[in-house]
């Protein structure tokens, strides 16, 4: 008797896409490292690329719920977790490149940099939140913490705000007068604002109605 292969559902296809998309940046990075394509300042290239991947994946993770709200797509909603975990993976690699590769785990120096530079402090805060959320993402903690788990995991929004602020503050120039190349973090910030607006009932309800879903 042969077991029937499980049908390839929409939900599974989405999951496979998320895993491929989530692993692609690190595979590409390792490939570039061994083929010498990281440019003349490889440490900076790795720090920038992992940071960018973390923010993009984090924003995508936060996009799942609004999409579900508007289009009633439970399989999309389930992607929050793998996308969020991949975001945490890249945030971790971003930190590792900074602390291990760049600063050679010199704790004195890392501490001095962290307290001296607001953008690093803000980045560390985002990293800490993502770290806690990663550990408590398991079913066990969800069951154990109950209502508290939901509240705890809402801090992912705070992590996203901190991550975008970290990027804004890391740009050379002047943030207040917008002198400098702020294009990327501004796009991320605008995207985050749209996501927040879509959480407001007086915005998503009429949108949902116009799509024929009361």
């Amino acid at each position: 008797m042969e077991a029937k292969p499980a049908p390839l559902t929409f939900s599974k296809v989405l999951r496979i896409i998320v895993h491929i998309g989530g692993l692609a940046p690190v595979v590409y990075l390792v490939w570039d490292y061994y083929s010498g394509n990281l440019g003349l300042n490889p440490i900076e290239a790795v720090i920038r690329r992992t940071g960018r991947a973390a923010i993009i994946l984090l924003l995508l993770s936060l996009t799942c719920t609004p999409i579900h709200t508007l289009f009633n797509a439970p399989p999309v909603r389930k992607l929050r977790k793998p996308l969020g975990l991949y975001a945490a993976l890249y945030a971790g690699l971003h930190f590792a490149a900074f602390a291990l590769w760049d600063y050679g785990l010199d704790f004195n120096l890392i501490w001095r940099e962290t307290v001296e530079k607001p953008f690093i402090l803000v980045g560390m805060a985002a990293l800490l939140i993502l770290f806690i959320l990663t550990i408590t993402s398991h079913r066990y903690w969800r069951r154990k913490l109950g209502r508290g788990w939901v509240i705890l995991h809402r801090s992912v929004y705070l992590a996203a705000i901190l991550a975008v602020a970290h990027h804004l503050l890391a740009i050379k120039g002047d943030l207040l007068s917008l002198q400098g190349n702020y294009t990327l973090p501004m796009i991320a910030g605008a995207f985050l604002i749209v996501l927040f607006l879509l959480r407001l009932p007086f915005i998503y309800k009429p949108l949902r109605q116009s799509m024929g879903r009361g």
Partner: peptide
């Protein structure tokens, strides 16, 4: 004299790893 963005106590010599 520190800078809000980059370490001025240490530097990365292009072509070298670490600081």
């Amino acid at each position: 004299v520190s800078h809000p963005r980059w370490s001025q106590a240490t530097e990365r010599r292009i072509g070298e790893s670490g600081r």
